[in-house]
Amino acid sequence: MQTLHQYLLILHIISGVLALCVFWGPMLAKKGSPWHVRSGRWYSQLMYLICGAGILMCALVLTAPLVVKAADLSPGQDPVKFAAAVRQMSGFLLLLCLLALMNLRQGLLALQAGPARLSLRLWTHQGLVALTFLCALWTLWHAVPRQFVLGQIFGGIALFSSVGCFRYIHRASVERSDLLKEHIGNMLASAIAVFTAFFAFGGRKVLDLGPELQLLSWVLPSVLGIAATLWYNRRYAKGRAGLKTAAVR
């Protein structure tokens, strides 16, 4: 199990680094252009690898924490308490992987499905949204009494995001602008997971952030991602308003 976990971790890290670079292709390219579509496809494939490896790693740790994380167990440390702490963190990381995967699928299918949203309503996708919702509830259920701040923050984000996905899927009707907003918002949300991992794990060490800034390293990517989503949506809304005014004239 340890060896498999290590290989998955290497795949997870390499895919994450590549995704950090490739993300700027669809982000900066003209929307709908060949380069936007091509780089977006690369980014999506990397995200599938990141999420898949992450989910498998979390499953291994949750199944056998004392085997997979044996090297982290200090001499004299209580194995029961150690296993409980490791499982709590792995459950939290599993939620992040599910959240990123759900946002990625929602963003991709929003454009592919069109106003009918038939592929979004398949049990495979709605099952993923439901699983993310239940995992968010489970995380909040354990995080609140244990004062696990990260679990409270991201449990709330995952809960809100999964409910938003369900509302879009089952809305009576959607406009073309709604498709693009759903695509942009969820693709940016999936990227937040990559940047969160960079700041919270690698970036915190590279930038030499102290313990007092650990929470900031987790929360900052989400704050910036939400701000970027609002900016994109406002920019697109202004662009459509300008086109309508020009058409009237």
Rank of each mutant, 00 (worst) to 15 (best):
I153G: 03
K81S: 14
Q112F: 05
K181N: 11
L137P: 04
T139N: 05
L118S: 15
D178R: 04
S161F: 03
L134K: 00
L122W: 10
W123L: 05
G76M: 10
G151I: 11
Q77L: 02
F92Q: 08
D78M: 08
A143P: 06
S177G: 02
I153F: 14
N103R: 06
P145N: 07
L131S: 13
S177Y: 01
R167E: 06
M57L: 12
K181D: 11
G91F: 05
G76E: 12
P115R: 13
R176Y: 04
A116L: 09
L134V: 15
G91R: 05
P79H: 02
C58R: 04
L93R: 09
A64E: 13
R176L: 11
R117C: 00
A64C: 06
L188P: 06
A83D: 06
E182Q: 15
C51Q: 07
L150A: 10
L109I: 01
M102A: 13
S162G: 07
M89F: 11
A158N: 07
L159S: 03
S177R: 08
G155F: 08
H170Q: 10
S161D: 13
E182K: 03
A71G: 02
L140S: 02
N103I: 01
T124F: 04
T124C: 01
L93F: 13
R167H: 07
W138Y: 10
G185Y: 02
Q147V: 09
F160Y: 11
E182M: 09
T132L: 00
L98D: 03
L60I: 04
V68S: 03
S119H: 11
E182R: 07
P145R: 02
P79F: 02
T139Q: 11
R176Q: 13
G91N: 07
L108V: 14
V174H: 01
N103E: 14
H142V: 00
I169S: 09
A172N: 14
L120G: 00
C135W: 12
I157M: 09
